[in-house]
Amino acid sequence: MIQNIKNVNYLNLMKHDFSLELFIHSNNVANIAMKMADEIKLCAGEKQILYEEALYHDIGKSKIPEAVLYKKSRLSPDEWEIMKQHTIYSQELYLYVVDNNGNSTEKARIIRHHHENWDGTGYPDKIMGEDIPLHSRIIRIADIFDAITQRRIYRPYRIENPLNLMEEMEGKEIESYIFRKNYYLFKRLLANQ
Rank of each mutant, 00 (worst) to 15 (best):
A147G: 04
L163P: 05
M166Y: 00
N192I: 12
L22F: 06
K41R: 03
L163D: 10
E39R: 10
D38A: 03
I141W: 00
S176I: 09
I24A: 01
E173G: 10
N101T: 14
I148T: 14
E79A: 13
F179E: 00
K181M: 15
Y56H: 10
P77W: 06
M34R: 03
A67S: 15
M83T: 09
G102E: 15
N100Q: 14
I32E: 01
R188L: 12
T105D: 15
L22I: 13
I144E: 12
M14N: 01
A108V: 10
D119V: 05
P65T: 15
N28R: 11
M1Q: 02
E116M: 02
T149Y: 03
H113Y: 05
N161P: 08
R109V: 13
P124T: 13
Q3P: 15
D143I: 10
G102S: 10
G45D: 11
R74A: 07
N12C: 08
L55M: 06
T105L: 12
R112V: 12
K61P: 00
K35M: 07
R109C: 08
I174N: 01
N117H: 06
F23C: 14
Q91A: 02
D78G: 07
Q48R: 11
P133L: 07
P65R: 11
V97R: 01
S19K: 02
Y183A: 03
K6Q: 04
D99R: 04
H16W: 12
D78N: 15
K35S: 12
L13P: 01
R152A: 05
H114G: 09
G171M: 04
D119Y: 00
E130T: 14
I111V: 15
R158F: 10
I88A: 08
N103W: 14
I111R: 05
P162L: 02
R155G: 04
P133G: 06
R188V: 11
K187Y: 10
K35Q: 12
D143M: 03
A54Q: 00
Y10N: 00
Q3L: 13
I5F: 00
L190S: 06
N31F: 07
I110M: 01
I40R: 00
K47S: 03
N164I: 06
K6W: 10
L190E: 08
I5G: 02
D78F: 12
R180G: 08
R137E: 03
Y123E: 14
A108T: 11
D99Q: 10
Y154S: 09
